Simulated scan of single mutants.
Amino acid sequence: MAGARAVRVTSGGDPAGDLYERIGDFLRDQRLSPDPANYAFAHHLFTTPGGPLARAVHALTDGGVRLTQRDIETLGCELRSADQEAPAKQAQGLVAQTQMHVEGFADIVTAMRAETAGFGRDLAASAAAMRSAGASDTNSTTIEEVARITGSMLERVRSAESQLESATREATELREKLEEARDNARRDPLTDLPNRRAFEEAFAAQMGKGEVCVAVCDVDFFKSVNDRFGHAVGDRVLKAIGEALTQACAGHLVARYGGEEFAVLFTGCDLGKAQATLDAARASVAIKRYRLRESDAPLGEITFSAGLTDLREDERYQTAFHRADRLLYAAKTAGRNCLHVG
């Protein structure tokens, strides 16, 4: 059965070759074209045989049923959504590690304080004994005891310094990883643009600091692109739109807000200038003629619609964004490939 063959495990002397053959067999059995998206799907299937994708494929193909291209695209979308959660989970893990390091520092400092207090008590006791015996009666035993206490304390201090140095080095490395993870958690993995979280944080930081405008942009008829050409092509279209917006709106924040929706935060310019900039971006996208990389076949016209507004005095982020979103909807209703301002 196709489902059984999809999860078979081979044993040979060449693991890479075995994997390649299994992927080829799978694509042939399912009558799928060997394009990059399907190959990547099969590669993930066989390299994580106990994962959720393998279980989903087994359920769909049980009884000899073949996967359709739509099944591949749907399951692939679920995989991409799961992958997008990875940066946030990584950041959470690093935060936990940071907390452990902070607690480790506290333990080292507490131990050093206890050692220092003990050292002080021992020295005080020795000094009291020397005073009570009188300077002339101070014997070598008392001096040896002071030397022993001092030597022991020095050894403990060196050990603590070594622990602190190691902990400091690990904390520095962890801080760098945490900064990287935080950046990844605020960045869209497909387009490498800031994501919704980063956009909302930047918007909040700009409130009360001068002129601010916000735009919401949405790719027109994007679902039909995915339906006709697949999600791999749809992803490339999203990246192209993101690059076009970034270039046209240089100096302002462009983010992928979610799905086929982008947001632009204009700072330090009035509504008229923001409108001219965004409309130029819309026009530059509309005149391009996109083609399939594999066959050079045309995709047809790719356009986006947008709503643009400015942030009014004492206005909250949600109010301004929702107004821009309503203007976007009006642009869609008006025929798409246009910009509405309000």
Rank of each mutant, 00 (worst) to 15 (best):
R293T: 14
H322V: 15
Q99T: 13
T168K: 05
E103P: 06
D35V: 01
A2C: 10
R323Q: 10
R121Q: 15
L45M: 01
I149C: 14
D71G: 02
F321S: 05
C269K: 04
Y290M: 08
S224N: 04
T191N: 04
D25T: 10
E200I: 02
T246S: 09
Q99N: 13
R196P: 03
R312K: 11
R326V: 05
T68C: 01
A167F: 00
S33E: 15
S11P: 09
L45G: 02
V219S: 09
G258F: 02
A283G: 05
L328R: 07
L327E: 10
A56H: 09
Q30A: 10
C249I: 08
L271N: 03
E78K: 07
Q318E: 13
N337A: 12
E85P: 00
R156D: 13
E161Y: 09
D62C: 14
L123I: 09
Y39S: 00
D220R: 03
M1E: 13
A232I: 02
D188Q: 00
V233H: 02
Q318L: 12
G17A: 13
A54W: 03
L123E: 06
F105L: 07
D296P: 04
R291I: 08
K223E: 07
V219Q: 06
V219M: 10
P49L: 00
K89A: 02
R312M: 13
T303K: 01
A133C: 09
G272M: 01
A128V: 09
A4S: 15
R22E: 06
E313W: 12
F266H: 06
G268R: 03
